[in-house]
């Protein structure tokens, strides 16, 4: 962030901080929704989601730096985002096709190796990509006077993407291919007996998940203006996983709510903590323990917020009659 920001009035600083927080919540929601597609609806245990986020971010950053200057900014933005998505999907194909025959823990180990591996290899190899590098601003030059505009623009983009992904998942789960995914998740063999190709169905879901994570990574690269390997460490995967478990495997609204809750409490604790800014580590562990005791299926389980409200209303109506 440039120095000019420090001299801005408090109200603007607060706005800046808030938009930044909401954008990050949105990106986490995208990551969690896409992981939920794989782990929740698809019932595959993947621990490599940060790898796809990384590939998307680095893919987009690399292409942005490599493209000649002077092209229209919006065009560069869209192209590089699609490229980041493509790179992440290619990564998904690379790890998914050989590994999706694995089950449970084995798949988790393989994907974890992938997620950590791509980051370590790319950040250590000399592939014309320095380990961390700045991403040229393509939409417009940012300075302290238009920083808020810039953030609001990204806020809009992220909200649009979250809405898009929510609609995509909702429609997919209700489609024939989506139901096939649910069938395969529950009983591969029975699904195979009905003419569904279980591996094909799983690969498709895995690729959708990795593509969305890649897109989130690409948007992040453009938003932050720089990418560095330390932004994509395993702790990121832990956070996404925690959001998915907290929100409920197979719940869209749970996922978004959990992304918000986790981010808000983590920030809050960071401020209270002062010297010990690592309070989130305690929080995460505590959340997992409490979750396993009180709500092992997440806040809503596989249900949605709307289902919960409907049930609650029905119960209240029944209660007032009695």
């Amino acid at each position: 962030m440039d120095a000019g920001v420090l001299q801005l009035p408090l109200a603007i600083k607060l706005d800046l901080w808030l938009t930044d927080q909401v954008i990050l919540v949105g990106l986490f929601a995208l990551l969690a929704l896409s992981l939920n597609l794989i782990n929740g609806w698809g019932r595959m245990f993947s621990l490599g989601h940060h790898g796809f986020y990384f590939l998307g971010a680095y893919g987009a950053a690399w292409l942005t730096a490599a493209l000649p200057t002077g092209l229209p900014g919006a065009l560069v933005f869209v192209t590089t985002c699609l490229f980041g998505m493509l790179v992440a999907t290619a990564g998904g194909l690379l790890i998914g096709v050989p590994c999706l025959r694995l089950r449970g823990d084995y798949l988790a180990i393989a994907t974890l190796g992938f997620g950590e591996g791509v980051r370590l290899v790319i950040s250590n190899a000399d592939v014309r990509v320095p380990p961390g590098f700045t991403v040229p601003r393509v939409l417009f030059e940012v300075n302290s006077s238009n920083l808020l505009m810039y953030r609001l623009l990204f806020l809009g983009i992220v909200i649009l993407l979250v809405v898009g992904v929510v609609l995509l998942i909702r429609n997919y789960v209700r489609s024939s291919a989506g139901r096939a995914m649910l069938a395969v998740a529950q009983d591969e063999r029975a699904a195979g007996l009905l003419g569904i190709n279980p591996t094909g169905s799983k690969v498709l879901v895995f690729l959708m998940g990795s593509a969305i994570a890649g897109l989130a990574g690409a948007v992040y690269a453009h938003y932050s203006g720089s990418v560095a390997p330390k932004d994509f460490e395993f702790v990121l995967m832990v956070t996404i996983f925690l959001i998915v478990v907290l929100g409920g495997l197979g719940s869209i609204s749970g996922c978004i709510l959990a992304a918000f809750l986790l981010r808000a409490t983590e920030r809050g604790l960071g401020m209270v903590g002062g010297v010990v800014s690592e309070w989130w580590q305690v929080e995460f562990a505590l959340i997992l323990i409490l979750l396993m005791i009180f709500r092992p299926n997440g806040i809503f389980g596989p249900r949605e917020l709307t289902d919960v409200i409907r049930d609650w209303r029905q119960r209240r109506r029944a209660g007032s009659k009695a």
Partner: peptide, 22 residues
């Protein structure tokens, strides 16, 4: 199949529709 192996998380109608997947 033996043991029926129906999809417990899908509705009865959806189970039947899965049969016509192809």
């Amino acid at each position: 199949p033996e043991g029926r192996r129906i999809f417990t998380n899908l509705t009865v109608r959806e189970n039947l529709q899965m049969g016509a997947y192809l």
